[in-house]
């Protein structure tokens, strides 16, 4: 039996999951999925910034477009250090595709016109 606090939404349900993956304490279905992932392959969305060449701003906010393995968070940060982006950029533009061979992309989360 493992006790977890669900991080899917701000409610923060107190979950319990047993050896045969039965989940209790969740108020919605997403809590069940979260608990199963958390004990098998925990994932997180990584958000950060990369260098930006623009008239108004110095940093471009970015994130993984899907949650990535928790163990890869610091490797993602190392990859982001290598990147420099020139304006214009649109929110949603892919900044790094298939990062670390995970099939997950790094996308811009802000539109910079100039």
């Amino acid at each position: 039996m493992t006790k977890l606090i669900c991080i899917v939404c701000p409610k923060g349900c107190h979950l319990e999951i047993d050896e045969s993956f039965n989940v209790t304490g969740n108020f919605c279905k997403r809590g069940e999925v979260y608990a199963k992932n958390e004990v098998t392959n925990p994932t997180r969305t990584v958000t950060s910034t990369v260098k930006l060449n623009s008239k108004i701003l110095k940093m471009l906010p970015v994130r993984t477009d899907k949650p990535i393995a928790k163990s890869k968070m610091f490797d993602v940060m190392e990859e982001l250090k290598k990147v420099e982006v020139n304006a214009p950029v649109n929110s949603g533009d892919i900044i790094i595709s298939n990062i670390l061979g995970t099939n997950i992309n790094i996308i811009a989360t802000r539109t910079i016109k100039e």
Partner: peptide, 25 residues
């Protein structure tokens, strides 16, 4: 919102986990 680059915004309104700048935009 522009400096809140972490995700989790918009769960109630869009059922998505946006970053602050995305929600603002």
């Amino acid at each position: 919102l522009n400096q809140c680059i972490h995700n989790g915004f918009g769960l109630h309104l869009f059922n998505e986990e946006l970053s602050g700048p995305e929600y603002a935009e």
